[in-house]
Simulated assay, not measured.
Amino acid sequence: MAITLVPYHQDERLPDSSFPLPEFDIIPVTRDLPDGDVWTRVAALCELVSAEVADQVSGGTVPAVVSGDCLIAEALLAGMQRAGVDPAVIWFDAHADIHSLESSTSGYISGMPLRQMLGDHPELLADRIGLRPLAEERVVLVDARDTDPGEAEFLATSKVRVCPVDDVVLPDGPLLLHIDLDVIDKDALPGMKFPVGDGPSREAVLESVRRIMSTGRVAAIDLACPWDLPEGDDNTIRARVLADLLSA
């Protein structure tokens, strides 16, 4: 199985050791990023990812992409749309990632991709990579148990469906399956940048993913690995989690 590896957190190039994928063939996507603000740099990277995804989808392959954060999911959606596939999005994440520029108190841009997929501030990234906005009812947010007030306010009046890991109701049609690995409880997968407790086990997430994959409707899968590796850690747990999810 070939994995498209995008070894970045936003515009920061991460060491290859951050992504333990010894069981897979790797298609790396890297480039010298242009000068400019972070959105310009991320857009340049996402354009390469979008083109790779579009080529794979057009060729009948289900792309599997691994990266260091959730922004790359926007590139997957744009690439799928470019190839003529208009998927719904199933978004596994301990966080909602549905901030706008106005609602975010931290300014952390990796907390904004899902809102941008819905059409927020398209000039930042979507317009640059040809991403068309999703209808809210085409998004399912899974186990987002750590939401900020601005996100909760938006979700309270939106048509985005929010559900637990063990009760994911799927929209019709093809699916983009996005999994931020911090959806797993922090004690079951240590070392995350933004760990959240009271979450599902690795086994519960894997079983949910297997149920979704068994529908045969997943047209692309995206794994975000926003972790800080503890010093001396041998990556065994992370390697197993990645292998299990990518083989589901």
Rank of each mutant, 00 (worst) to 15 (best):
V142Y: 13
V218A: 09
M213A: 05
V6I: 09
R31A: 15
H178Q: 11
S158K: 05
L245K: 00
V65H: 05
V89Y: 01
I179Q: 06
T147V: 15
V85W: 01
R238N: 01
G107A: 10
D148R: 02
V142M: 13
P200C: 15
D120F: 09
D69L: 01
A88S: 15
G111W: 08
D55A: 15
L134R: 10
L246S: 03
D185P: 13
G68E: 03
R238Q: 08
T4I: 14
R41Y: 04
A88Q: 11
L134H: 10
R238T: 00
I212H: 03
M192P: 02
D233W: 14
L223Y: 12
L71W: 03
L189I: 13
P122W: 10
V139K: 08
P171T: 07
S208T: 08
G119Y: 11
L134N: 08
V53W: 10
A2F: 10
L170N: 13
S247A: 07
T30W: 04
I98N: 14
V62H: 04
D166V: 11
D172Q: 15
D182A: 06
Q116W: 08
P226V: 13
E207V: 14
Q81N: 08
L223S: 04
D185S: 05
R41I: 01
R202E: 09
V183Q: 06
L14K: 02
P164L: 10
G111E: 12
D172C: 12
D86G: 08
D37S: 05
V162D: 07
T157C: 07
S58E: 11
S208R: 08
D185C: 08
M213Y: 05
L114W: 07
A2H: 07
A224D: 11
R210H: 09
D222K: 07
I3M: 00
L176V: 07
D127M: 01
D86W: 14
A220G: 12
A156M: 13
L206G: 12
K193D: 14
G191M: 09
